[in-house]
Amino acid sequence: MSDSTALSAKDLIAQYGGIALDKQNDLSAVIGDNNWTVDLSEGVISFGDQLTFPIQIMGTFSHSSETFLWGWANTQSDLPENLLQQAAQLKAYGEEHQLPLFTTGQFECAINDVHYIGLIASGMFGSSAYYVADYGSGALLVTIKSEVVDKVRTDSPQRVLTVFPQLISLFEMDHQQALASYLKAKAFDVIMKEKELSATYNGSTIVATFDELHRLASLNGQLS
């Protein structure tokens, strides 16, 4: 991704990245080591014989060319229109807010950028999770909506202490903004100061400090 694209999307990954990455833990707990299959005519992804979830297609990543192709730009594959609604909404959002990440049909990227898009899309649309379905020569990025995944969601404050450091190690963002958004999405009451954040939920407290550039300096929890 170009610098301008990355900067344009930083607010979105900060707003949605924490809770979206949190949800990936729920998906992993549900699907385990099951292999995946996709049925585009039915609009579903299956993991083993018992788990089948509706999907929206974001796009595909090519390992050989290291490019991402948005679903709405993939005219050769004749993808079902009803599976491209979220991708089309992201394109419209990108056009409105001048975000090339969402409006450039195909662009060079790394596989980590595919997860970046997945986190933003999952967060924006309130999905249960996203999934990168690797098929050898490339990978299909989809969002998933499933009550099965939603039901295993945990409000454990402990997860914040593991998920958030992972998030900021993977992507550039305003750490203070990202942590506040993540905690609010998990129903914490958040109090912000210049270089400090404190949050409480159901008897648990999380306190974080930041440097002058809003980078995380410390993250601690008193968990009930």
Rank of each mutant, 00 (worst) to 15 (best):
P157M: 04
I168Q: 13
A139K: 00
G43E: 07
G123T: 01
P100E: 14
L167S: 14
D134G: 05
E147S: 04
T162A: 06
A139C: 06
G136H: 00
I57E: 09
W70Y: 00
L69R: 05
T154S: 15
Q158E: 14
D155S: 09
S62P: 02
A139P: 02
L141H: 04
Q106N: 12
L83V: 05
G138V: 12
G126F: 13
Q166Y: 09
A121S: 13
T104A: 11
L167N: 08
G71I: 05
F107E: 12
T60N: 08
N35G: 09
T75I: 06
M124Q: 08
Q166G: 10
G59S: 03
G123C: 00
I120Y: 15
E42P: 09
S65M: 02
Q89R: 07
R153P: 14
S46D: 12
C109W: 01
I57K: 01
Q85P: 07
C109D: 10
T103M: 10
M58K: 02
S128H: 06
A92H: 08
P100W: 08
A110S: 10
L90N: 07
Q76C: 06
D39Y: 00
G138L: 07
G138N: 04
I45P: 11
F61L: 05
A121C: 07
N82V: 11
G138K: 00
Q89V: 15
G118N: 06
L69M: 13
C109V: 15
I120G: 13
L84H: 03
A121P: 03
Y93M: 12
D78F: 13
T67W: 04
V44T: 14
W36E: 03
P157A: 08
R159C: 03
D155R: 04
E42F: 11
I144P: 13
L167E: 14
Y131N: 05
F107M: 10
Q89F: 09
I111D: 06
E95P: 04
H115N: 08
G59Y: 01
Y130A: 05
E96T: 05
S41G: 12
H115S: 15
